Simulated assay, not measured.
Amino acid sequence: MYAILNRLQQLPVIGNPNLWAAGNLLILLYGVLLKGWNLQPIVFIFWIEVIINIAIALVRVIFAHDKQPFLATLPSKVGALLFGGVMGIAFIMLTVTFSIGVFEGGFKSEGFEQVPWQVRLLVLNYLLALLLHYFLNKRYLIANPAEELMGTFMYLLILLALLMVLTQFLIPKVTGSSNNIALLTGMAVVVVKFMVDRLKLTLQQKTQNLPG
């Protein structure tokens, strides 16, 4: 099994980190373009994605060796996990607080019947990225626990800043507007999210020598 996964990791397409960003984009575009999602399912999935990011970051912290034996980094890992847990809860609360306005006009169930499948695909996409680009390529052997944690929080901070702009300017205008405007707004949110994902990958490729 390990040999098969290792071969997959070496394939030009499967082993390319950009596949993670493309997967996230396609999952959301499917809902927006084919299922006619309004902003509510998009924001809900964004909440889930924040939770996934934090969970994945904590997993990376646990297994980060920082070029040392596993037990040698245990004290720093405990501190990083405690800090990451507290900051993670804070980020989740801020994310919900700044985007809850999309539900003020009433809950619209359209599109939510597909959300469980989209969430499963999203989790699978993140797990594959973790497996291929952290464990199979042995990056965990040189990964620093603090850097793994801070990289994720910087990524989430950028997303949260964009979400604040969305909450203050776009959501009030979309509430009660036509379906076309809601669709365009949903597309804008998805595209901006994709651009931030690409920015994250670009920075990782420069600092970690990941394949482009």
Rank of each mutant, 00 (worst) to 15 (best):
L25P: 06
L128S: 14
P211R: 10
A55P: 01
G23E: 09
V196P: 08
F91R: 01
L82N: 13
M187K: 01
A188Y: 09
G105E: 09
A188V: 06
M150R: 10
L163R: 09
Y134S: 03
P12F: 01
L121C: 03
T202P: 01
W37N: 00
G186V: 09
T152Y: 06
N18Q: 13
L141P: 06
Q168I: 13
W47Y: 13
N125T: 11
L162N: 15
L170C: 10
Q205Y: 00
L122R: 13
L131H: 00
K206V: 11
I181P: 02
W47V: 00
F46Q: 12
P172R: 06
A182R: 10
P211N: 07
M195F: 15
L25H: 03
A21I: 05
L210D: 04
L149W: 08
F135N: 02
L128T: 14
A182C: 01
K35T: 02
P172F: 09
L170K: 07
D197C: 10
F112N: 02
L33S: 10
I48R: 08
V86W: 06
R60H: 12
K193P: 03
F91I: 08
F98S: 09
N137V: 04
I14M: 08
P17Y: 01
I171V: 15
L157F: 15
I14Q: 01
V86C: 01
K108T: 10
L74P: 06
V191Y: 00
P116C: 01
P69G: 05
I100D: 10
Q168Y: 15
L203M: 10
L199N: 08
M195E: 12
S109F: 14
P116A: 00
G111P: 07
P172T: 04
M187L: 15
L199Y: 09
L26H: 02
G84N: 04
N144A: 06
R120C: 12
V189S: 02
V190A: 11
M87L: 15
L122H: 12
W117F: 13
I171K: 06
M150P: 01
L159T: 11
A72K: 10
L26P: 03
V43M: 01
N24F: 12
I4E: 14
L199S: 08
N16G: 05
L159F: 12
F63H: 11
E49V: 05
L71K: 10
V102K: 00
G36I: 05
F46L: 14
L25K: 05
G176V: 03
L201S: 00
I158M: 12
G186E: 04
Q118D: 13
V192K: 11
G31P: 08
T167Y: 14
W117D: 11
A80T: 14
A3T: 14
D197S: 11
L58G: 03
N6W: 08
I100S: 13
L201K: 00
G212M: 14
I89E: 08
A182V: 07
V96N: 01
G88M: 05
K200E: 13
